[in-house]
């Protein structure tokens, strides 16, 4: 009797130990994962707006002559960029990246609307804007208006721009803030992407906002 017990006793604890070990490993992994995701929520690549505010609405003229307001696109993520079409370096790079980001979202990309507000309404006529935007993505919309209207919208969004009389054959150049602002589906200004943010990083951030 005493012998039987002593031979059985080491057998059960071995099985017990293995099961327990496996079980507690899973449990631990689960707890660690949960804690990690609670402590480290998704970290955005773009600059996160602290205490996001509702983006102020405006009405400008779309590149096909149609009036465009933010409220017409509520429910979508809106990306706003201020630029000018005579710019062959920074603006095309940004727009091409936004196109790539939108493409890499697949179907979800339809939920992203890109606007470029011209800071050079004198040279960027509706026709020029339409041609420029469609070169990058047929869904992109160029926005224009009177210099006063554009200045007002830029001020809302903390965008600076200035005409610079350079000694380029181009004539004047435009200095401008080259960030992309993201307004979420509920109309809150959420993220700012500095120039040069990788397309995939933008896509990841947008994907997070779209899938929450």
């Amino acid at each position: 009797m005493n012998v039987e017990e002593s031979t059985r006793a080491p057998k059960r604890p071995t099985w017990f130990f293995i099961l327990w070990a496996v079980f507690s490993l899973f449990l631990l992994a689960g707890i660690v994962y949960l804690a990690w995701s609670l402590l480290n929520p998704y970290s955005f690549h773009g600059v996160v707006m602290q205490s996001p505010q509702k983006a102020r609405d405006f009405t400008l003229t779309g590149h096909n002559g149609q009036p465009v307001s933010l409220k017409d696109y509520s429910g979508k993520i809106i990306l706003i960029y201020f630029g000018y079409t005579t710019c062959p370096d920074v603006c095309p790079t940004t727009l091409a990246d936004l196109h790539t980001a939108r493409e890499s979202l697949g179907q979800l990309g339809d939920q992203v609307q890109v606007f470029m507000v011209t800071v050079d309404p004198e040279r960027d006529t509706q026709a020029v804007l339409a041609d420029y935007m469609s070169h990058f993505d047929s869904s992109f919309i160029g926005l224009t208006g009177s210099p006063e209207q554009i200045a007002e919208v830029a001020t809302y969004y903390g965008i600076y721009y200035e005409r610079a009389e350079g000694n380029s054959t181009l004539g004047y150049l435009m200095d401008h803030t080259a960030t992309v602002m993201a307004i979420d589906q509920d109309g809150y200004l959420r993220l700012v992407f500095p120039f040069g943010t990788a397309a995939q990083d933008i896509a990841d951030d947008l994907n997070y906002l779209l899938e929450r």
């Binding site: 710019c87 370096d89 600076y160 721009y161 610079a164 350079g166 380029s168 150049l173 200095d175 803030t177």
Partner: peptide, 9 residues
């Protein structure tokens, strides 16, 4: 330059 993107010859 600061917040502004500039392009010059």
């Amino acid at each position: 330059e600061g917040d502004m993107m500039k392009m010059r010859p």
